[in-house]
Amino acid sequence: MLFLRRTLPLIIAFAVGLIGILVFYIPHSGAQSLEYELTKWDRIVAAFALALGIYSLMRLHWGRVRRQQAGWAYSFLVFVGFTVMFIFAIYNDGHGPFNPQVADSGPFVWMFNNVQVPADATMFSILAFFIASAAYRTFRARTPEAAILLVSAIIVMIGRVPIGGLISDSIPELSQWLMAVPNLAAKRGILLGVSLGIVATSLRIIFGIERSYLGGGEE
């Protein structure tokens, strides 16, 4: 069992990880064919992962409904929403599950356009209110660095809307400079650091040093 639970996944991660890196850099037709084949496998695995994700989500919410935890009614709504959309997706506007998806008519499209779109857009638009309140409470020039950030933010906020150009032509230009020079420099530094971290973590996974993805079960 230990072989199946730990050794085999480590062997698969090592082999697939190493092959995945090598074929990316080898332009030989054989390596390229292998890479194309691997992308097919990856997409199949991703589709199964989607099914696993649905199972995990349902299990979590079923537990909440069963125990009648606080807010369990919202968990119940997850089942209602999932079941309704699943039935409409299978129905496929009368064409059934084995025909191409109908994307311009039918109850599935109606539900998407009239429930999910307005609900999601509403959730996102609420951010504007909270950002305004949070900016008033927390955006304070307590230190010289915070003062620089504050002034930069105000210039970018005015410069990114047409009213900035009405006040002065130099505000949009200054806003663009802030984004394209100091912002870029900081972002590139962060990006390089993050990328090196990703490379290091990937190598740790490939060589079996990092094993947290195997889960925390008993060995």
Binding site: A128, I131, A132, A135, Y136, R137, F139, R140, A141, L150, A153, I154, M157, I158, R160, V161, P162, I163
Partner: peptide, 20 residues
């Protein structure tokens, strides 16, 4: 969006003036 940006900037400046 222009007006809301100005409102947010107004509140940020007000918050800082009162803070100082």
């Amino acid at each position: 969006q222009s007006v809301v940006h100005l409102i947010i900037i107004f509140f940020i400046i007000l918050g800082n003036v009162m803070y100082f």
